[in-house]
């Protein structure tokens, strides 16, 4: 008897749930002609998800896209975002072009998703330094300027980011050591290949080691690379566990304010790299 009752309740409950579900789905279809696309994005260093969402809708509005059908969903890092799209929590993911190329070369499940409104959307990559460390920021800016004018920065970007062989990882560059010189601690996440990643031997490699080795050489100072979880980067910087956060984003757009992702009391260096934003989706 009890069993019968139990099954009856379950059936009733499932009918109820199914009924509600189909109701909701019908409503969504009526209100928007184009289907909503859930878009995965990486949480920023400082800008809150709500802020980012507001700007995000502004960019869509400004573009010629008639329907605001991209809704952002935020992930802590690239890994989680890829898992999100693989389990269809989101339909598309927003990544940098170099990351997208690397991703497609290593995981053949992905392809580029077309979205007109993102064309021309770019982000600058900078160092984040504490506001008190004005000397360090000035040094970094000076070296970046020098490297830009003598072309070594562009060469590095070509070698370690743009022209990475398909399916390969760029090599690690050894950091120079100066006895008795002071040490700058640089926090990296290891979450954004080919810019920032950790090689099979457990040590950071690729563009970040190349750039940091060059900076160490020009500064005549030791550089120590410390890997920090991306969620703990701001805390690490504020508590002096690291002196520099290796990548911080400054959007290049008239909609986004330049300091949208700048935490209080922190200065950003000049940009060392600029990349377009691309959307990826799973192959059908």
């Amino acid at each position: 008897m009890n069993l019968k009752k139990f099954f009856a309740t379950i059936c009733a409950a499932s009918l109820l749930i199914a009924g509600c579900g189909s109701d909701n789905a019908a409503k969504v279809d009526e209100t928007s002609q184009e289907a909503i696309i859930k878009l995965g994005m990486i949480t920023h260093l400082n800008a809150s998800e709500k802020q980012m969402e507001e700007y995000f809708f502004k960019v869509q509005e400004k573009s010629r896209a008639k329907v605001l059908n991209h809704v952002p969903k935020f992930y802590d890092n690239l890994n989680l975002m890829i898992m999100g799209i693989e389990s269809s929590n989101v339909d598309q993911i927003s990544v940098y072009e170099c990351v997208a190329n690397y991703l497609m070369a290593n995981n053949n499940k992905f392809e580029v998703a077309k979205a007109d409104w993102i064309s021309g959307l770019e982000d600058n990559f900078c160092f984040a330094v504490k506001h008190e460390d004005t000397a360090l920021t000035a040094d970094l800016n000076k070296i970046l300027d020098e490297m830009k004018s003598d072309g070594s920065l562009n060469k590095m970007i070509d070698e370690y980011i743009i022209n990475v062989d398909k399916g390969k990882t760029p090599p690690a560059i050894e950091l120079p050591k100066f006895d008795g010189a002071e040490t700058i601690k640089i926090g990296v996440t290891g979450d954004l290949p080919p810019l920032d990643f950790v090689d099979t031997d457990g040590k950071p490699a690729g563009f970040n080691t190349a750039l940091l080795a060059e900076i160490a050489k020009r500064l005549n100072k030791n550089i120590e690379i410390i890997q920090v979880e991306s969620g703990a980067r701001a805390a690490a910087l504020n508590s002096d566990q690291i002196d520099v956060v290796f990548w911080s984003i400054v959007p290049v757009s008239d909609v986004f304010p330049a300091d949208v992702d700048k935490p209080e009391g922190i200065d950003l260096s000049k940009a060392y790299f600029k990349d377009n934003i691309t959307h990826l989706k799973l192959k059908e």
Partner: peptide, 27 residues
């Protein structure tokens, strides 16, 4: 403990997942 700059098993796994872009299998 990856949050306090230590490279433990989870951190290593996350690094590999990022590098190989295959988080599901790696994790």
């Amino acid at each position: 403990i990856g949050y306090v700059t230590i490279t433990d098993l989870t951190r290593v796994i996350n690094n590999i997942a990022s590098r190989t872009m295959q988080p599901m299998i790696t994790i």
